[in-house]
Amino acid sequence: MIEVKNLVKHFGDKKAVNDISFTVNDNEVLGFLGPNGAGKSTTMNMLTGYISMTSGEIKICGIDILENPIEAKKKIGYLPEQPPLYPEMTVREYLSFAAELKGVKNIKKEIDAAARKVGLTEVMSRRVGNLSKGYKQRTGFCAALLGNPEVLILDEPTVGLDPNQIIEMRGLIKSLGREHTVILSSHILTEISAVCDRVLIINDGRIIAEDTPKNLAGRGGKAKRIIIRVDGGDDAVSAVLDGLDGVTYSKLGEGGEYEINISNASKDAGKKLFFAFAKAELPILEQREEERSLEDIFIELTKGDK
């Protein structure tokens, strides 16, 4: 379990992390979602004891990271944003070194098992500096898994991977989440919703929303977005739309497409829209309702904060 209270980090005048508090339960996968510069990496660097906080408190499995850093660090496997690799070593040498640092007992056996998990077996004797970006990422990830730490902290673990590798990596993180407490960061929404039990949306060093990916998607509440393509003049279409309650709309291109946002929409809002146009004898050629994606909510939340 991880407990974070009122975490603050200043770099000179810059408040990189500005009063963040949260807890992560055992075997939970928590996502940090936020744009570049939001403070995700800085928070992770504090969680792992790489840098100190300006103020606040971090407890890893009940152990304070400042009071007893060595014991706290034993609980953590960390994959930083840029995997911390020595290019001159072979993958096996590097992993052995990482394992020794962590005080792993049965080094060879554990390295082989972890390498198999992340799919590194075929490159074990290659030099780290010659690996592709994907393999470098896996090497760093593999090192984080050594010693089977209770907590895994993964900073943008899928950056630089190709689509197949991303799917593999997500599957791996999900399965690890059954036995580990995981925090992962990303600025990609689909990634977070694919693997996380809970999401913290971070912007400008603050948590601006916290929920399950599903609930967040529903946060738009009753708002609905409908795209229609109508055969009719602008004025006629506007006249119909203006006659409806709680509707805002905008024209999309020249093809007669409109994006319609209905606040406080009822279930049959789509039907009502259809009949309104039918009554005005304007045929709707195409009508589709769009799910409000996490993306929309994200943009809305971060927009309001600036």
């Binding site: 792992t48 004891g49 790489y50 060595i70 014991e71 690799l85 640092l101 005080g103």
Partner: peptide, 14 residues
Amino acid sequence: RLKTDQLLMTAPVP
């Protein structure tokens, strides 16, 4: 420069 200090400083080693 290589960021390997992140490995060293987050390992359970003084």
